[in-house]
Design a protein around this nucleic acid. Structure first.
Lengths: 161, 161
DNA sequence: TGAATTAATTTAACATGTTAAGTATACTTC
DNA sequence: GAAGTATACTTAACATGTTAAATTAATTCA
């Protein structure tokens, strides 16, 4: 007994059971990633590893909590990624003299070299997307996403309802 | 040597190395999922399992390829999820008499019962988000996401550049 | 100051994401 | 109608997502 067999009209962006917001966000993200993933892969990186490298290129010597926020990764994922990047000597760990619980991280020379190789390739893909989708719409999308995040963003642990 | 230490101005939605489009899409998605995930978990479901159940509630007796498209899951993930849902007798598999390579899937009575319990809870959260973010903006976001997907969407396997 | 609590990170366990390779069935074409 | 090709999954291997629990160091406060 199918609940809904007819395709939605074209002018009807309202969600139905086939088009939830999380899935539409996922689809848009996947469209973008289908461009970036092969490029990153050609450099031997995953998307998440690149996010960590990019964060460290902008803010060196930050601890894991700060890095997690900036790369938008959960702590357990970040732990594994940092262990891997350390093993490949892309990232170096140092202990924080003020707080023995923390480690602070930085790109190695090899890490900075990778960042400088991948950065331009990433730029080129952004420019391509910007041209295909249009700068105005891209900025509108950025704005709406930021507004949505601000309105609906996850509650931090210490501000539970 | 931090490349960029100053926060971007508020009126500057342009991407920088800290704010890539895939990450902004991920953040928005995560904001939404932070509402849905606990609800789904209280029903013993993951987001992806719920996507499969929802797709089968709308279109019964479809094969795995069709199901993959509608739930936006990759084939290997779908294989595992279907095996799990079969084991729990939420989904039933039948072989396609026309093509022995295919299986067709349908919700069991238990599966339909779950769908009818979870559906309203999901609805309630959508309404809540709609109220907090605003219907007009939500529709604008849906439209932009659809346009973005259409403009940048991944190429199918048989239409590679 | 020492017990209790909090914070930062890590580990564990299981589910999914991603790519490549494998398997079985259908199709095509000579 | 047999060989070659394409299709529809499925399995494999490794990386990440998600939640809970464990570990160790800092902090609080009785």
């Amino acid at each position: 007994m199918p609940i809904e067999q007819k395709a939605a009209a074209k002018e009807e962006p309202i969600r139905d059971f086939q088009h939830s917001l999380p899935m539409e966000l996922l689809k848009a993200r996947e469209a973008a990633m289908s461009r970036f993933r092969p490029m990153l892969r050609s450099h031997g990186l995953t998307e998440q590893q690149w996010r960590v490298i990019r964060a460290l290129a902008a803010f060196d010597n930050i601890d894991a909590s700060e890095l997690a926020k900036r790369s938008f990764l959960l702590a357990p994922s970040l732990t594994r990624i940092l262990q891997y990047l350390e093993k490949l000597q892309i990232v170096a760990r140092a202990s924080d003299s003020q707080d023995q619980r923390r480690s602070v991280f930085a790109l190695t020379k090899k890490g900075r070299s990778i960042f400088e190789k991948v950065g331009p390739d990433s730029e080129a893909l952004y420019i391509q997307i910007e041209q295909e989708f249009g700068l105005a719409k891209l900025e509108a999308l950025y704005s709406l996403l930021a507004e949505f995040y601000a309105a609906v963003r996850p509650l931090a642990v210490n501000e539970k309802s």
